[in-house]
Nucleic acid binder design. Structure first.
Lengths: 225, 225
DNA sequence: TATCTATTCAAGATAATTATTGAATAGATA
DNA sequence: TATCTATTCAATAATTATCTTGAATAGATA
């Protein structure tokens, strides 16, 4: 193989990955998939795309080997092919926030509802929970919770929150979380809870982001040995 | 701002980053830029692109805020806007190798010349150097060495290697490195050195990759505190 | 001032990507 | 077997990206 062919081969493959992430629709699909496996129809309705278009984008993601699919009954489930895909999303978002400060500003504005929704970091939240002063509430859909959730978190999907208020301790902090820093569910939950007198907060990340920080930490412990 | 507008805003910005990485030419430009600042003409000749096309791609990278430029005399120097860009390249490559095993196979085949060029990891190399059994040789261009290099490495650009053989210790291992795992310079150097009787090896990464591993390690030490 | 050099800009042809529509398929369920 | 459901495929039109060519610019140098 000639040197130039080798470079074309390598860069061609690298950009298969980046091309797959280069469409806002596909980026969003991957973002949802980082919460766990989902069917085409579910992804279509969550992203407000047509089913055909969703399917087409999923084909593109599969060609780039970022997702894999499996069949259960007559549903096709798609999921991330590798946890490193979630890491790539994470780093791309972080770089976007660094290079376009507006992005972070708008995120904070929107997810805190202009400052009225207090935010807590995961480490702070963990400390509160361990000290018995707070309870974690996962407000995502049940299957997303089942797929992965923060330890000790309760599952109360946002649309069930109002009818299940009685289950919540009035004397503790309630710390909600959802898919990640750009998801508004936890902010909606905090607003509802605060309007009912609870001391509510939201996390600044979701289980996928948290898993990445954890993994990086353990990678490094291995490297250090 | 409506919830949908917020998502479009956020995903639109995330994909500005990915779109910039989605062309093999631009990916290659960034890869060269991770070795240090370079002029348009230099980048054009290294990537075998026309100057106009190179400039156009650099504009695109600047729009995506992945590079910044500065002017010295009548040369425009471009450089990475953030070290995290190099990290994004690194992770994209790693994921491409995981998902497309051929990429790693071809890389190993090409950079070891079918197995005849022995490869060493950076940690192994560092240990050999510290024990006084090996010398590190940076075979990249002088300005790339000046921009950043592994500590204790000698600078001997590949095209000067033959005339400077007398400077090299015949009793130690010679460990060469270049831009990274996909760069062939170090392999060429090893072939030359071995043909003259030296005990030569190449590193499996370059200074940019090495810096990323280091940074990750120190990030995690901070997190642990 | 004239000229040279490095870079950018503008226009155009070609190719690739996207969303939409409607048809096709494959596997359940009745 | 017939029907239903979830998904994919195929064709189209609209948009966007790419490379080439040649002209324009801005700053050095003579």
């Amino acid at each position: 193989m000639e040197a130039r062919d080798f470079k074309n081969f390598a860069y061609g493959h690298f950009t298969k990955i980046s091309k797959a992430l280069a469409s806002p629709r596909r980026f969003e699909l991957l973002d949802y998939l980082s919460q766990g496996p989902k069917t085409v129809e579910r992804l279509a309705s969550e992203t407000h795309m047509s089913v055909a278009n969703t399917s087409q984008h999923l084909q593109a993601l599969r060609e780039a080997r970022l997702v894999v699919s499996s069949k259960v009954k007559n549903h096709h489930y798609y999921e991330l092919a590798d946890q490193e895909v979630a890491e790539l999303l994470h780093i791309t978002k972080r770089l976007a926030e660094r290079r376009f400060p507006d992005v972070a500003d708008v995120r904070v504005m929107e997810t805190t509802d202009g400052g009225s929704v207090p935010v807590m970091s995961t480490s702070q939240a963990m400390a509160e929970v361990e000290a018995g002063r707070a309870v974690l509430i996962d407000v995502r859909a049940q299957d997303e919770y089942d797929s992965r959730h923060l330890s000790s978190a309760l599952s109360i999907p946002l649309d069930k929150l109002e009818e299940r208020l009685a289950e919540l301790p009035a004397t503790k902090k309630l710390i909600t979380y959802c898919r990640g820093s750009y998801c508004l569910y936890a902010s909606d939950a905090v607003r509802l809870l605060r309007s009912r007198g609870f001391d509510a907060y939201r996390l600044d990340e979701g289980p996928a982001d948290f898993a990445i920080s954890r993994e990086r930490a353990s990678d490094e412990q291995e490297d250090a040995r």
